[in-house]
Amino acid sequence: MLNYSIAMRSNPIDKGAPKKAYATSQYSEVMNINQFAEHIASHGSVYKRSDVAAILTMAVDCLREQLLEGKKVELGDLGFFYVRISGEGAPSAAEYNPAIYVKKLNVKWQCGARFKDLLGEAVFNLVAPRSVSQKVLKAHKAGETTVDISPEVTEEETDDQGGMGV
């Protein structure tokens, strides 16, 4: 079940265009490597959670090592992992020095066959946006029985829209 909320967003290219409603994914929890290993082990594996966690941890270490060696790593149906360089341009090839012009290395994932069509199997569940959930939780902790969930409007939004924004 994929949780999602609806967010009104403007078109970054056409700022004057009316906002449109878009789905925003909302995860229900963060699963750490030990919880994931426990889940894997619960699927009839002959390995214990600790064995699976050790293998996953080693896989992460080895993947990092291979990426730093300039390799593209294929992990079957999981897909490919590789590094992309992000940085600035030098005035000429002769002046290019990665220590100066490379600003970031981005690890990219190219999904494998089992991840290409998740939409065909997805089931969606509409939930409150995170901002509303946070307001409700804060009110609950304070013992309040009512919550104002109207969106907060910044001065910039008020100026842009000539009044209160929605």
Rank of each mutant, 00 (worst) to 15 (best):
A94K: 15
P91C: 13
G163E: 13
G162E: 13
P98N: 02
R114T: 13
A59L: 13
K71S: 10
H140Q: 02
L126D: 08
K15D: 03
V136C: 04
T57R: 11
V123W: 00
E29A: 13
D77K: 12
A99C: 09
Y101F: 15
Q134S: 09
T145H: 03
T158V: 14
H140S: 02
E95H: 12
H43F: 10
G162P: 15
G112Y: 07
T158W: 15
Q66K: 14
K103D: 12
Y27N: 00
C111I: 10
G120C: 10
M164W: 06
S86M: 12
S10P: 03
A90S: 15
I13V: 09
Q110N: 14
K48P: 11
A17C: 01
M1T: 05
K116V: 13
S25I: 05
K48Q: 14
G143R: 03
L63K: 12
L63W: 14
S5H: 03
I13L: 05
M58P: 05
F115L: 15
G112V: 06
E157W: 07
V153F: 02
W109G: 09
K15M: 06
P12V: 00
D159W: 11
C111P: 15
V30M: 10
S45W: 13
K71F: 07
M8R: 06
F80D: 14
L2P: 03
D159Q: 15
M164C: 02
E69N: 15
N106M: 10
E157N: 09
V132K: 07
S28E: 13
T146Q: 13
Y22C: 00
P18W: 09
S150A: 06
A59N: 06
T145D: 14
Y22I: 00
N97I: 07
V102L: 05
A53C: 04
N106W: 04
N97G: 04
E65C: 07
M8G: 01
A53S: 11
E65G: 15
D159V: 13
A90P: 09
F36S: 02
K108F: 07
A139Y: 08
S50D: 10
L119N: 08
M1G: 03
P12N: 06
A37H: 12
W109T: 03
D160C: 04
S5K: 02
E121V: 07
T145P: 12
E155W: 06
V73Q: 05
L118T: 08
Y96I: 09
A21V: 00
I6L: 07
Q161S: 11
G70C: 01
G163P: 10
F36A: 05
L126T: 02
K135C: 09
G143E: 06
K108S: 10
Q134W: 04
V136G: 02
L2K: 01
Q35H: 08
Y82F: 14
Y82A: 08
F80G: 02
H43I: 12
L78M: 08
L137Q: 15
K71A: 06
L137K: 14
V147L: 04
K19T: 04
P18M: 04
N106R: 12
I33H: 12
A93G: 03
L75S: 08
I40P: 09
G163T: 02
K138R: 10
K48N: 14
S133P: 12
G79I: 05
S86N: 14
C62E: 15
G162D: 10
I55S: 15
E155M: 08
A21F: 01
S25E: 03
A21W: 00
A41N: 05
E156P: 12
K72H: 11
A90L: 06
K48A: 14
G89R: 13
